[in-house]
Amino acid sequence: MELEVRHLRALCAIADTGSVRKAALQLGMTQPSLTTQLRRIETSLGGMLFTRGQTGSRPTPLGHSVLSRARPIIAEMTALVSAARDAAGGVGGLRLRIGSIGSRAVTGWLRRIHQRLPDTDTTIHIDVSSNTLLQLLATNQLDVAFVQETPGLPLAVPPGVERRVLIACEPRFVCLSDRHRAAGRPAVRLRELAHDAWIVDPTADDEVTALRRVFTAAGLDPRLVHVRDATTAAELVASGEAVRPAQPTAAPAPGTVIRPLHGDPLTAQLSLASRPGSLPLPQLDALFADLMASYVDLAAADTTYRAWLDRSGSPLLPSVGSH
């Protein structure tokens, strides 16, 4: 068996996601087919590339050796294809390629960028996985990426990628039906949701792990429901069938409310990632300022989040208190 670029991409995807299942989702493959492909690659190379366990798939020493050579090859191929496509399409002028997690802050961010850089061809790639965005950034498919990281569950940051912290500790709220018994409370305790099903996105980085860790610490074991479609998730919550974690800047869907969790057991760090030299520093500073301004506007306009900031005396967004 001769190794091809697609095989190298598969190996990198498994290493980056820490799971054959997650890598298969990222690559648009079934888990059995990726498992079979991995076994053939390992047979061809004469040794195991990953150890498999309850915590996921981790590279063996041989795996690290192969990955260290595979990543530069993939990066070069990606750059070659991108340059060829630009040349074939006659692409010219200024270009800005942005990646982002799903966030309401993105709309205001893009609006500010378009106002400041009207002659720049700006594209946006939204992905639920921050690890995927970082890989796209590392392989020169993005110029900057708005990402999030769960404390204690670090992202797989590729070599050469830097992050500038936007929000050091953003709380995660909970979205529940407006008919839920806890809907009227200013903050909801986890124990009040012990008998509710919790919706999680299986493709989101460490969301399931983070929730299970919080529940275990609280002595709880609620049922988790895997739902990738946002519309279906919103309807399940509105019907009272389940609850789900929510960003504090999220807008509640009809029939739902968003409330803080007592004690803030779930948090995330938000940052803007880039490659050194990919953009001039003044432009990177401006992009960061645009994103921060968009986020502050959302926080100031959201009564629930603003009330949380006031109650906690948080220095997270000191300018919000003046609104």
Rank of each mutant, 00 (worst) to 15 (best):
E207C: 08
E207V: 14
V208W: 06
V208F: 11
T209Y: 02
A210Q: 03
L211G: 00
R212K: 08
R212M: 00
R212I: 11
R213Y: 00
V214C: 07
F215K: 08
F215S: 09
F215M: 09
A217S: 08
A217H: 02
A218F: 04
G219K: 08
G219V: 01
G219W: 04
L220I: 14
L220D: 01
D221R: 09
D221S: 11
P222A: 11
P222G: 10
V225F: 08
V225L: 14
V225T: 12
V225R: 04
V227M: 03
V227A: 02
V227Y: 04
V227N: 05
D229T: 07
D229K: 06
A230Y: 14
A230S: 04
T231L: 14
T231P: 00
T232W: 15
A233C: 09
A233R: 09
A234W: 04
A234Y: 01
L236Y: 13
L236F: 04
L236M: 15
V237L: 11
A238Q: 05
A238C: 05
A238L: 13
S239P: 05
S239E: 14
S239Y: 15
S239K: 11
G240Y: 05
G240H: 15
E241D: 15
A242K: 10
A242F: 00
V243Y: 10
V243M: 07
V243R: 04
R244V: 00
A246L: 05
A246Q: 03
P248D: 03
P248G: 11
P248W: 03
T249C: 10
T249N: 03
T249Y: 01
A250E: 07
A251I: 13
P252H: 10
A253F: 02
A253N: 02
P254D: 09
T256P: 01
I258V: 12
I258K: 03
I258R: 02
R259T: 01
P260T: 07
G263Q: 02
T267V: 11
T267P: 00
A268H: 12
Q269F: 10
L270D: 12
L270Q: 10
S271V: 06
L272V: 06
L272K: 05
L272A: 06
A273E: 15
S274P: 01
R275M: 15
R275A: 11
R275S: 07
R275T: 08
P276W: 05
P276F: 01
P276S: 13
P276A: 07
P276T: 05
G277A: 11
L279C: 02
L279F: 14
L279D: 01
L279H: 13
L279K: 11
P282C: 03
P282A: 07
P282F: 12
L284Y: 08
L284M: 12
D285N: 09
D285T: 13
A286E: 11
L287P: 01
F288C: 03
D290G: 15
D290V: 10
L291T: 12
L291Y: 15
M292H: 09
M292A: 07
M292S: 11
M292F: 10
M292Q: 13
A293L: 10
A293P: 00
S294T: 14
S294R: 00
S294P: 00
Y295H: 14
Y295V: 15
Y295A: 14
D297P: 02
D297L: 08
D297T: 04
